[in-house]
Amino acid sequence: MSTSLTIPKLQMSSTEGTLAEWLVADGSTVEEGQAIYSLETDKSVQEIEAPASGKLVQKQAAGETYPVGTEIGEIV
């Protein structure tokens, strides 16, 4: 089973976010609640926590801007 990681809607007006940095290397084991990436919007920068425990698979590059809902990785 896997858990999809998508660009979240952090503010009501958010339509996109920049994956500022992966905080955990691709293929690393993560624990639920651990910060795994930072997301930058027009109003803030936030660390986003893993919604589940498992192995992180990165699907998108840091430094790029993606629409809300875009799958950027998964935890398997």
Rank of each mutant, 00 (worst) to 15 (best):
I36V: 12
W22S: 11
A50N: 09
S53L: 12
G17C: 02
Q34F: 10
D42T: 07
S28W: 12
A61N: 11
A62Y: 01
G33Y: 00
G33C: 00
D26G: 05
S28T: 12
V68K: 01
K59Q: 01
Y37M: 03
A62W: 02
L56I: 07
E32D: 12
V30R: 09
S44C: 01
A25S: 15
I36N: 07
E40C: 02
L56D: 10
P67E: 08
L39V: 01
T41S: 14
V57L: 06
Y66S: 09
P67I: 03
W22C: 11
V57S: 09
A25G: 13
T65D: 07
K59I: 00
G54W: 11
V24E: 08
Q34H: 11
G63V: 00
E47S: 15
V24W: 10
E40W: 02
G17R: 00
E49K: 15
Y37C: 03
A35V: 08
A62H: 01
E31Q: 07
D26M: 04
A50H: 05
S53R: 11
P67D: 05
E40G: 01
E21F: 08
I48P: 00
A25H: 14
Q34R: 13
D42K: 03
L19Q: 04
K59F: 00
V30Q: 10
E49G: 07
V57K: 10
P67M: 05
G54L: 13
T18A: 04
V30S: 07
K55F: 05
T18E: 10
K59M: 02
K43E: 13
G17D: 03
S38E: 15
D42Q: 07
S53M: 11
I36L: 10
G63K: 01
W22R: 12
